[in-house]
Design a protein around this nucleic acid. Sequence first.
DNA 1: TATGGGATTACCT
DNA 2: GGTAATCCCATAC
Length: 209
Amino acid sequence: MSKRKARARAAKLPRRFYTREDTLLVARELLGKRLVIPAPDGTRVSGRIVETEAYLGAEDKAAHSYGHRRTARTETMYAVGGTVYVFFVYGMHHQFNVVAGAAGTPHAVLIRALEPEEGIEWMRRRRPDRPDRELTSGPGKLCRALGIDRSYDRADLLGERVWLEDAGEEIIPVDITAGPRIGIAYAEEFAAKPWRFWLKGNAYVSRKA
DNA sequence: TATGGGATTACCT
DNA sequence: GGTAATCCCATAC
């Protein structure tokens, strides 16, 4: 049996995957997992996570929840680990995050890039005239390709609308590169923290360095 | 209520 | 490499 067929029956990640205290570990371990969102016709649209960024809540100047800021938007970050946090930036792009940690701990992991696996026709339809290589190679691109908008904010990853699966793939530390997060120059001493993780050499990562 | 800027992308030179 | 697009959010008045 092929590896790919085995993946089709993979189990959803359990709550305890998300509620661990070490969000940097969660961000690293999300690499190689599969994000699945059924299309309107029921087709599985999915991709393998190849790039993430950790946002460490109240202590992290780059995080929306820095200093325990609580607003209508950031409220989602205080939910229990395994909740979806979607926000909208630059007047045109959605960003898909996984809330991490216990309820009340406003940590999140931004999913920055996927390698398309299933439902690629749906991705092409939603991002016309783009080469396959650019369907999901960035946080805004993958939201467009998977049809993610703010209606997914607060969704539960143990539900039926969107979830993550263990694809049975083992990622070892040597396969992972870490570097500074993207687009957070305003975050002062936190701007240089190496809290962005990606699969070394993967063609779908949004930036090489 | 007004205003400044953003966890990006695509297209231009 | 530079920058327009475009709208919601957070904060200031």
